[in-house]
Computed example of a mutant assay.
Amino acid sequence: MFRFAAVLLMLVAPSLLLIENSGQIGVKNMKDPKCPPRKKNFAALTGHICQRSCERRSCSKQRNCVCDGDCGLSCIPPGLSCPWPVMIENAETQMAQESNTFGDFMRVTCHPRFIMHNGQDVAMSRCQGDGKWSFTAPCEDSLNLSSVCKPPPEIENGFHESGPYKVGKTVTYECNYGYQLEGASTLLCQENEEWSHAAPTCHPVNCSQPPNIAHATLVAVHKPEHPVGTVIYYLCNKDFYLDGSERVVCLENGSWSQLPHCRARCPISAQRSRVIYNGRKLWINEIPAGLVHHGETVKFFCRSQNKTCSFEAESQCFDGVLKTPDCYDEPTYLQYHLFPKRVVSEIPAC
């Protein structure tokens, strides 16, 4: 009886802020500061379907922000309940409270001669946010129970697969977001009922100081190291074009996401001929400073082989360079001043 009371107290204590006298969910969007962060891949390992997280954003009007165990702060509908009664092989089930709503507990007691792999014959199961009872180890015949290892150590900022931990079975450790595993990620339960390796550790991953980019300013960055998920911003200097995203993120591998470039404007090489820019036929002095932005296109005029008509040849500005088409010939000073109507851009189109 005392052991059961202790188990119940340990399981119920983290949820006291979430359960009122009726077993219903508490005040809407009241976040529990003691709630653990959501474990990575927790649902895949346990079958528990985590609901939408409300750690950083609010729930809809139809849901409350409450702690859902290892799923962390989650959006749960009021009045959520789990199935009852529940039949478990080789065990009896009994409600620990008067209801079977979210956060309530069910006691699972093994039949005589049956025990769980951790050596207990009583366990508590909690009504989760997915409307299902949490997993408890099955009750097996103590006479036929396979050799097992003790539960592998819990690690800070990480987690491992759930049991049973039979001889020959392996368990895999993973780290939470922003942390990197150091040590053996997989442990084997050996015949001597000991684990093959010591538990690994999880260390925070940081990105080093972000690199400088030519013709750019790094916005308000003063720290020597930056944790995973840190966002920094680059701003290009005046008259430079941002090629890429201004937003750069510290990734889980400790590197920064793809950096942008600040591209220079391009001078137009044609001086005595009109060009087509932004859909308009313009002399160079009609284009501000005679420069176009990175990525923009300019159409030059070229003479046909028989010199009687002109056609367009397009070129694109790339980081300060606007290549003049091979077919373009710059008119001479005399051609431009003495015979302006014969300039290539002024003769009829082919």
Rank of each mutant, 00 (worst) to 15 (best):
T186V: 15
T186Q: 13
T186N: 12
L187C: 04
L188I: 10
Q190T: 07
Q190Y: 04
E191G: 13
E191Y: 04
N192R: 04
E193M: 12
E194T: 15
W195N: 06
S196E: 02
H197T: 06
T201Q: 08
C202A: 03
H203W: 00
P204A: 01
C207Y: 02
Q209Y: 15
N212W: 08
N212V: 00
N212S: 14
A214E: 15
A216P: 07
T217C: 00
T217A: 08
L218M: 14
A220W: 05
H222N: 14
K223V: 00
E225L: 14
E225M: 11
H226Y: 15
H226A: 13
G229I: 05
T230V: 03
T230G: 03
T230R: 10
V231S: 09
Y233L: 13
Y233H: 14
L235G: 03
C236F: 03
N237Y: 02
D239Y: 10
Y241R: 11
D243A: 14
D243C: 08
G244N: 12
S245I: 07
E246D: 15
R247Q: 15
R247H: 08
V248P: 03
V249Q: 11
V249G: 05
L251Y: 11
L251K: 15
L251H: 15
E252I: 11
S255W: 13
W256R: 06
S257C: 11
L259N: 14
P260K: 01
P260V: 08
P260R: 00
H261W: 12
C262N: 05
C262S: 05
C262D: 04
R263S: 13
A264Y: 01
A264M: 10
R265P: 08
R265C: 09
C266Y: 05
P267Q: 12
I268E: 07
S269F: 10
R274W: 04
R274S: 10
I276F: 00
Y277R: 02
N278T: 03
G279W: 03
G279M: 02
R280Y: 07
I284K: 12
I284P: 02
E286I: 01
I287C: 05
I287H: 00
I287W: 09
G290A: 08
L291S: 01
L291P: 04
